[in-house]
Amino acid sequence: MNNFLYGLTGDIVTPLDPIYSEARQGFNTAIQQFPLIIVYCATKTDVSNAVIWSRRHCVPIRIRSGGHNYEGYSNGDCTLVIDISQMNDMRIDEGLNELIVQGGVTNKLVYEFVASKGYPFPGGTCPTVGVSGYALGGGWGLSCRNFGLGCDSLKEIELINYEGITIKANRENHCDLFWACRGAGGGNFGVIVSMTFNLPPKVRNVTLIEIDYLNVREQEQEEFLYVWQEWLKTADKRITLIGRVYHSSADGLGMLIRGIFYGSAEAAMEMMAD
């Protein structure tokens, strides 16, 4: 096995290792897959070596950041899983209003980092989702009506291509690749190792909105969805709300509104009353 692993760098996990069962498990436990090797990459060189190794040995690769792919596409049987979760450095260029993150950062890490500097970020709703998977899939979140999709703020990507070569893509260089990755880049064109985002202006107040209606009737659920969609068409762009209808054993038929408003709680209350 050691000779077979020659060329791989980083922390390598195989089925013989005690942590294999835990390391192979993705977010969706309904999907059980058994990769041949999992390599935790800490550097771009580790990623490049993994890509080159996979081609040499004809082993399919999967790319994993947060491990939240619901269909299990960031894992696979008899594959090499390139896990970049250890690549989670971040920095802000205040002069350019840019956020530069490595490919393994999660929504939670980014939110905590930029909030400590007074910035918002058009990220996703789940804290443990990888930002690279989120943004390269388009990136819908609770800031989208105010700041656009996550990919709208994406300024540059750095990836390792199928040959193990590092490429930087933006609107001027490899512009077709950059365009394609902003919506269809989830592992299709390379392994993302770094992303640069334009940051929105700093904010002072962000208000969480959550309203839950319990034990309602089906007709009320229908009316709720209609009113919510019609109201949101002309609502202040600083507010983004998710509307849901559900049925649970504890609460019966229910309706939920959840979202955020970039402003004070008083302004949010007034807006919701309208």
Rank of each mutant, 00 (worst) to 15 (best):
R64E: 03
R64H: 07
G67K: 05
H68A: 07
H68E: 05
N69D: 15
N69A: 15
Y70S: 08
E71T: 14
E71I: 15
G72Y: 09
Y73N: 12
Y73W: 15
S74F: 05
D77E: 04
D77C: 04
D77A: 03
C78T: 12
T79E: 10
T79F: 11
L80Q: 01
V81Q: 02
I82T: 03
D83I: 10
D83Q: 10
D83Y: 05
I84T: 15
I84A: 00
S85G: 12
S85L: 13
Q86W: 13
Q86M: 14
N88A: 14
R91Q: 11
I92Y: 01
D93A: 06
E94N: 10
G95T: 13
G95F: 15
L96E: 11
L96F: 11
L96C: 15
L96P: 09
N97R: 14
N97C: 13
E98P: 06
L99I: 04
L99D: 02
I100T: 10
V101A: 06
V101W: 00
G103D: 00
V105A: 01
T106P: 09
T106C: 09
L109K: 13
E112T: 11
F113L: 10
F113Q: 08
F113W: 08
V114T: 01
V114Q: 01
A115H: 11
A115D: 08
K117M: 14
G118A: 03
P120H: 08
P122I: 08
G123R: 02
G123P: 09
G123E: 05
G124C: 02
T125A: 15
C126K: 08
C126P: 10
P127D: 04
T128F: 04
T128K: 14
T128Y: 09
V129G: 07
G130F: 01
V131M: 04
V131Q: 01
V131E: 01
S132A: 13
Y134A: 02
Y134K: 00
A135I: 00
A135G: 01
A135E: 03
L136P: 02
G137N: 02
G139W: 00
G139N: 02
W140R: 15
G141C: 09
G141D: 06
L142M: 11
S143F: 12
C144Y: 11
R145H: 09
R145T: 06
N146F: 12
N146E: 12
G148M: 07
L149G: 07
L149F: 11
G150F: 00
G150M: 00
D152N: 07
D152R: 03
S153Q: 07
E156I: 06
E156R: 15
E158H: 04
E158T: 10
L159E: 02
E163I: 09
G164Q: 03
G164P: 07
I165V: 15
T166D: 15
T166N: 15
I167V: 11
K168W: 13
K168V: 11
K168G: 10
K168N: 13
K168E: 13
